[in-house]
Simulated scan of single mutants.
Amino acid sequence: MEEFKIRLGFEKGGSLPVIHISGEITSEAEDEIVQSYDSIPNDKKIRVILNFTDTSYINSAGIATLISLITKSSESQGKIEFAGLNTHFRKVMDIVGLTDFVLIHDSLDTAISQG
């Protein structure tokens, strides 16, 4: 079991929040993911990137956390974007319908360079 870690960083001179998620996204990760998102200043929540490059596993509780984050973001006219999903996670996001609500980038660099 790979330890869950989360780190909030800012790109583009501090204007673009990026939540770096590594390890396994399960029910234990929910509080940290939500707290990390909530700690972003409101004026910077217009576009938030979740970086999954180092994510090794996600279960249904993890998916539910992502859905609640997407809902929370859209309620405040913000957008959540995903970056660095491997082929398997991309397929899972497609199956559960999240790709209809988030922009998916192949890599974090691609996500940062757009918008």
Score class of each variant (00 low, 15 high):
S60E: 05
A64D: 12
E75R: 14
S68I: 08
A61F: 12
V18C: 02
L66D: 06
V34I: 15
I40F: 01
I67W: 09
I25L: 12
G62T: 01
E81P: 02
K45H: 06
E30T: 11
Q35R: 15
S22D: 09
D38F: 11
V18N: 00
S36P: 05
I70D: 11
E75P: 03
I63T: 07
T71L: 09
S56R: 15
Y57S: 11
I21N: 01
H20K: 08
S68R: 12
E28K: 09
E32R: 12
D38E: 15
S22W: 04
S73I: 01
Q35F: 10
S27E: 09
T71N: 09
V48A: 05
S39I: 14
Q35G: 13
I33E: 07
K45D: 08
S36Q: 00
S56H: 14
H20P: 02
S15Q: 06
S76K: 14
T71P: 02
K79M: 09
V34Q: 14
V48R: 06
A64W: 07
I80D: 01
D43P: 05
K44W: 10
V48I: 11
T65M: 04
P17G: 01
N59L: 11
T71I: 08
S76H: 13
E75I: 06
F82W: 04
L50P: 09
N51T: 02
I25M: 12
S22I: 04
A29R: 06
I40V: 11
A64H: 12
S56I: 13
N59H: 09
F52L: 08
N42C: 14
L16T: 03
T71A: 08
S56W: 07
E28M: 08
K79I: 04
N59V: 10
G62N: 02
G23V: 04
I19W: 05
D54G: 12
A64I: 03
G62I: 00
L50K: 00
E75S: 12
I19C: 05
V34T: 11
S15C: 00
P41N: 09
I19P: 07
T65K: 07
A29W: 05
E32L: 12
T65Y: 04
I25A: 02
S73W: 00
I40W: 03
S76Q: 14
H20W: 01
G23Q: 07
H20S: 08
S74V: 08
K45V: 10
E30N: 10
I21L: 14
I80T: 00
V34W: 06
E32T: 04
G78C: 02
S56K: 15
